[in-house]
Amino acid sequence: MSMFLQACVNGLLMGGFYSLMGMGQNIIFGVMKIVNFCHGEMLMVGMYLTFILYTFFGIDPYLAVPIVAVTMFCLGSLIQHTLITPSLGTKSFTNLLFLTVGLGLLLSNGALVIFGSEYRSIRTAYSQTYIQLGPVTMALPRLISFGVLIVVTVALFAFLKYTTIGKQIRAVSQNPVGAEVVGIDVKKIYILTYGLGIALAGTAGALLTQFYTIFPTAGASFGFRALIVVVVGGLGSIPGAFLAGIFLGLLETMSALFISPSYSDLIVFMTFIVILVVRQTMIARRK
């Protein structure tokens, strides 16, 4: 029973990360109808940023989260302004596919050149502190990350629901023509949206650093899972991405617990394929 609860908590934690990645990906997709194939690499950049801040400036990984988020937001805005917005004008999906995939390759290989292929990690004074919560034991960094994930997710929902910019983001994603009719600066929203999506990926990276190794392709598995989350949760749907992320995290830990940890990737992707097939037949039947 306590094993089961432990797996639940770990599943929720990993699910929180997948949700964050998927929601960032989905905000970008909703607004611009593009899939951001370098989303996982952005998480990796967030990890290395945190690593640099900790190793060279002695900044605690959790205090680094806001710095990483802001830096990544600026990086994302810059990429949107200089690379993606001009490519959107061509209305070519392949252009944007190559652009974002290329950016991802550039980032992971750039990290390889700068940091080498060694596995890095951040060990703080409290990395090995464990907290007993009833039948569940959790390392303190995991607990803090979990808390921060909840705060960020709630803040994201509130931002989209109640702020003017958040409403404008939703408006552009629901009806770009209507958005232009009511005078929304669509290009500005593009910049803010991509910046926000990248900041969320960077935040996820920063929150992972104390219990996940840092290496140039560390983002790949998260990038893939973000895509699964997006497809399962529904393209462009933020609540859908949130739920799908949590589901994916739980599925992973449960299959590791009940079947075998070495099969968890297999099970995740099998489930993904089954969901795709089932949904496809349902759509076909509806037609």
Binding site: K167, R170, A171, Q174, N175, V177, G178, V181
Partner: peptide
Amino acid sequence: VQVPEGRQLFTEM
């Protein structure tokens, strides 16, 4: 200010 053809509302809002 225009009321566009097809209304162009934000349907999920």
